[in-house]
Structure formats: structure tokens, C-alpha cells
Design a protein around this nucleic acid. Structure first.
Lengths: 128, 128
DNA sequence: AATCGATATTGACGAGCATCGATGCGATCC
DNA sequence: GGATCGCATCGATGCTCGTCAATATCGATT
């Protein structure tokens, strides 16, 4: 069972890069309405959109953008989202790996900030 | 079993509208980086993004946009996507219900076209 | 160094979803 | 009117993912 799962992830990495799909979107994907999207480009774009397509993760981005210093630590987000701390950490990891957020550890706290231009890059692929 | 499924859909409709999430996005959602997103707005926006966050559906939109008349019938898309016809019909239904496509039946064929401004509405919520 | 607080990771569970074969339904054609 | 073609729906299946409890890790404080 475990062998099967690892094998699938391995083959997935071989075919298309798994991390930072957003960078691949900005670098390689052509705008969606400008000519037919290739199958690999569609996969890359879908992976980036899928990270964004979750209420908790959208609120994370929104909360960070709305905060005074444009940053937030995990405990703030746990209070605001009313989700468990492991769940919030899980969403944050997804957003970092996709290229929407960066993590900076200062002492005990981990501060998350937006990657400038990340949302714009995605929007530009949707609307040229 | 059937009663259970219908009940879930009914209660879902009571809490938040299920159809045309994209219209709700354009009408009610504030831009994601302009102030904190409310929980219902986050749910609505996530539902619209989730419809878009699939390689097959992205390619459908792209194929329609790239076609000469900006329209496509199911059989064209089945050939292009290399998916079964029920699967393609399923994706098309999702895109229509979300407000990205409209369906027009002409004779035996069903023709799908893009809803003008649908992608723009979504992009505007991401980037104000 | 022992403890404590903040965060990350693991494992498991349940819901949702993408996919397909089988079937149903109209419209067209012979 | 029967046969055929295009498309939608149904039921089932296997996978993905959001969530949380438990646990681990790591820095800070005493």
C-alpha cells in the first residue's frame, strides 16, 4: 500500500514538476484564451488554481493582505479561521509550495507574507 | 440513499446558493486583497475557482476560445481531450452551472460557447 | 537542563470528485 | 417506424483532499 503511493508520487515528479507550479504558470503557460492549451500546461495551471480553490486558503491570503504589516503568524490565522492548528499549518504549506506565500521564522513564531505578483501572474493567464 | 443525497443538496441550497457561483463572485465578492474575505465570500469564490481548477475543464475553455467560431460541440471535445463522452459531458455541465459556458442545442448537436466576461470577473477578484 | 509555548509532521478518517460503462432520450435519416 | 447518431444521466469505483488528534521539533525562558 505504502509502496504504491510512493510510486505514484515518484512517477508524477518524473512527468511534471510538483513544487512551485505558480512559477511554471508564469514562465511557460500561454494565456488560456490565446490558442489551445497544451495538456501539460493545463495540468500545471490546474494545480496552481487548485491550491487557491479552497475557502480556508483564500481567507489566509486575504487576512495576510489585510493585516497592517501584510504578514501573519500561525496563531493569528488559527484564531481567525477557527480551524485546528495542524489544519492551518497544512494550508500554509500548500500555499508556500505553490508560490503564493513565503515563510520566515522569527524566534518561536513563523511569519507568512504574500509573494508579490503571484496573484497577478495567475490572473494574467486567465485574462491576457 | 436517494433521499439522503437530495437532502444534502437541499440543505446546501439553504445555506449558500449552488448554481452560478460565478455571478455571485462578480456581484458580491470583494477583491481578495482588499480587506479580509468573509467566510461565505471565501466559499463562493472557492467554488468558482474549483470548477476552473481541472485540466480537462481548462482545456475545454481554451479549445472553445481557440476554435474559429468560438464554439464547440461535445464530439469535438471528446476527440481533443481524449476522454470518454460521459466524462466530457460531466465537465461541460460543471462549467455551465458555474457560469463559464452556455449550452445551445442546434438539431442533434449541443454547442458550447464562452460567457463573455466570466474569466475577467474572476480575475478581477484576484487582482483588483 | 527542564519546561513551556509555537509550529510542523504523521496517521487516519470521511467527504468529494474525476472517470467510465451502461443506459436513457431526442433528433435525424432511410 | 425502425435504425442510427449525438448527448445526458445514472451507478459504481478508485483516488484526492480537508480535517483533526496525537506526536515531534525547535526556540525561549527560568
Amino acid at each position: 500500500m505504502l509502496v504504491n503511493i510512493d510510486l505514484r508520487r515518484y512517477t508524477a515528479k518524473m512527468s511534471t514538476p510538483v513544487l512551485l507550479p505558480l512559477r511554471d504558470v508564469a514562465e511557460y503557460c500561454t494565456p488560456i484564451t490565446q490558442g489551445a492549451l497544451s495538456a501539460p500546461d493545463a495540468e500545471t495551471l490546474a494545480r496552481a488554481l487548485k491550491v487557491l480553490a479552497d475557502p480556508a486558503r483564500l481567507r489566509v491570503i486575504s487576512l495576510i493582505a489585510a493585516s497592517p504589516e501584510s504578514e501573519a503568524c500561525v496563531c493569528d490565522l488559527v484564531d481567525a479561521l477557527e480551524l485546528s492548528q495542524p489544519t492551518v499549518s497544512h494550508h500554509l504549506k500548500q500555499l508556500v509550495e505553490a508560490g503564493f506565500l513565503v515563510r520566515e521564522k522569527r524566534g518561536t513564531w513563523a511569519w507568512y507574507t504574500l509573494v508579490p505578483g503571484s496573484l497577478e501572474a495567475l490572473a494574467k493567464v486567465l485574462v491576457p
